[in-house]
Amino acid sequence: MNNVFGNKRAVLVFLGPALLIYTVIMLVPVLWSLGYTLFTGSVITGFEFSGFDNFAKLFSDPKVGEALLFTLKYAVILTVGQVLVGYALSLLYVFWLRKASSLVRTLVFFPIVLPTVAVSLLFQKMFEVAPQNGIVNEFINLLGMPSVDWFGSADTAFLVLVIMDIWRSMGFYAVLLYAGLLDIPEEVMESARLDGAGGWTLIRRIVIPMSLPVLLSSIIFSINGTLKVFDSVLALTNGGPGSSTTPLTLLMFRTAFSYGDYGYGSTIALLLTVICLLVTVFIFRSSRRDLTKG
């Protein structure tokens, strides 16, 4: 038996190809990318060793500061928005719509599987002001207010971006959290009800504490996704107006491919990776401390 399951050659046959491709195309490039941070130039123009110049530049570059700030702002606002709206929807599904929720659940989930590019272009047209009012401005006009140039200023462009991404993802988070809510044992709910808890008390004292683990994993998933935002920004605002909605990912892409500086691009990519890691570890640790306290 051990001969069968401990067959070294079988391990190689089953695991080898996957591990090979994974190593060559993901692990090696990650290390390679680390090496790039010490150089300047690109594959086409050739590389030149520049020591730690890229890092010095990174910390004093106002563009990086702006992009970093935008990335964090977007990630925090969108994570809070996605998880809150998703959680509200999931509570709605479980406690209010109950069996009737199946159709709503399925429909509201749908936008997340749509190509981001398609959704972004659709929203671009919906919020358009010139040459032709989109449906949103038509509606605003209907209420007696003048059309808004949504993509003309940083704040409104950001607002459209947030609305779009919450529209896309709320159904997904709702289903994710819904599964967590269904896992709360019925006995716990029942005994709380017998003890006189109802409505908001029940939700605040029983439902929220008991769904903390799934809330936490949603938050980690959401923040990891939103820190890497790329498609929706590129297709919706293309980083503009100016560079006011440019996240780190897009700045990195431009630095590398428009300005041909792979070294600096890799340094920005490294900054992004480090932030993702730090945020995840931070959330994990702070949540663990809370658990021991409570």
């Binding site: 490039p29 594959v43 792979y262 993702c276």
Partner: peptide, 26 residues
């Protein structure tokens, strides 16, 4: 090895893009 694969989920695509571009080019 499983952990090694797991680590790949965290890595942003931007981190592997440039080396791959060079490699495919060469």
């Amino acid at each position: 090895v499983l952990l090694l694969f797991l680590a790949g989920i965290m890595v942003p695509g931007q981190m592997i893009l440039l080396p791959l571009f060079s490699a495919y080019f060469q």
